[in-house]
Simulated scan of single mutants.
Amino acid sequence: MAVLERYSVPHGVFAEIGGDQPGEFHRRCAPLFGKQLVVEISEDTPAELRSVHDLAENSVDVLAHYDVLEHVADVKDFLAACHRALQPGGVMICEVPDLRLYPRNLLLLEFEHVNHFSATTLNAIAQQVGFNLVELGHTCSRPYGFLSVFRKESVQAVRSVDSRCEFIDALACVRGGIEQIQRTEVQIDALRLRLATMGAERKKITLWAITDLMRRLLANFTLPETAIVVDSDPRRKDHLAQDGVLVSEPKNCIEHIAQSELLVICAARYKSGILDWVARETGKTFFADELVVLGAGPSGETLT
């Protein structure tokens, strides 16, 4: 929010691309702009527009997209559409996963990600469509990205990119990410064996959070009948339907969670919040031998 506050236009137009469901973020944005627009391709999410190309030319003062660009098939076309929609002097705020953090994150497991950026490469592409970089930082909504602020200006400050160094750096980061994935695969194999053993012993298990790590765990693996899958987001109830797995909301499974002898968390960055909810709502405390956090490092640090 601090970045948006610096570039607020009280009587201007703010557009968020990939805005998801309106919530606290949009309420906090309301005093900063005269009008807000949400562009969201998902038909399940209410939005004024379904494509960045639907934004009228020179109609927006500030445009933002958070963790969207890594999913876009044609990055240059997308950024050109953003540039077209902005007023002269308008600002684009862009947050993406940072390639240099891959060795400590499991982003390469995100099969939806079709692009991978460093600050240098994103800036190079943005310059090609007419943007100037005015701000760069790592204070983001997620712990593995960077945030760039670009301005639509008539005069460009073109910066050269040392592609050789950039390639070497990117290659090292990708290799580090692959090594982390390989370690996680070992963790998943061990967890599958434990789940099967506990299922045979009729012990209750709770798996929490629909993520790519959860999908990787369930690939070619059948959960025991004593296991349930929960996620706090009701929109994810059908996300594992193709695997024949029912996804429930935690509030509807309090008794099962309280009786579970193993809790598997598949979204490491939400570990504290999940454990706090469990303790508050069920009175259950999961100790170290009853808890598995996929995507956590050897010391318990978050890797996703």
Rank of each mutant, 00 (worst) to 15 (best):
60 V>L: 09
52 V>F: 10
260 S>L: 03
230 V>M: 06
273 G>M: 05
226 T>L: 05
242 Q>H: 12
262 L>I: 12
126 A>L: 01
48 E>T: 07
217 L>D: 00
112 E>L: 08
72 V>G: 06
137 G>D: 14
35 K>S: 15
207 L>Q: 02
290 E>Y: 00
2 A>N: 14
2 A>I: 05
128 Q>G: 08
200 A>D: 07
63 L>I: 15
276 D>G: 02
272 S>A: 15
104 R>I: 07
279 A>H: 09
182 Q>P: 00
189 D>R: 14
288 A>W: 05
285 T>M: 06
108 L>H: 03
224 P>K: 09
103 P>F: 05
162 D>G: 02
145 G>P: 06
18 G>S: 10
40 E>R: 04
144 Y>V: 03
257 I>Q: 08
268 A>V: 14
112 E>M: 09
120 T>Q: 08
81 A>D: 15
143 P>H: 08
53 H>L: 11
284 K>H: 07
199 G>T: 07
123 N>E: 11
53 H>K: 13
187 Q>D: 14
146 F>G: 04
52 V>D: 10
163 S>F: 14
134 V>K: 06
36 Q>G: 15
226 T>I: 04
155 V>L: 06
279 A>G: 09
213 L>E: 07
210 I>H: 09
61 D>A: 10
253 C>F: 02
297 G>D: 13
88 P>W: 07
150 F>W: 11
177 G>P: 02
220 N>H: 11
285 T>W: 05
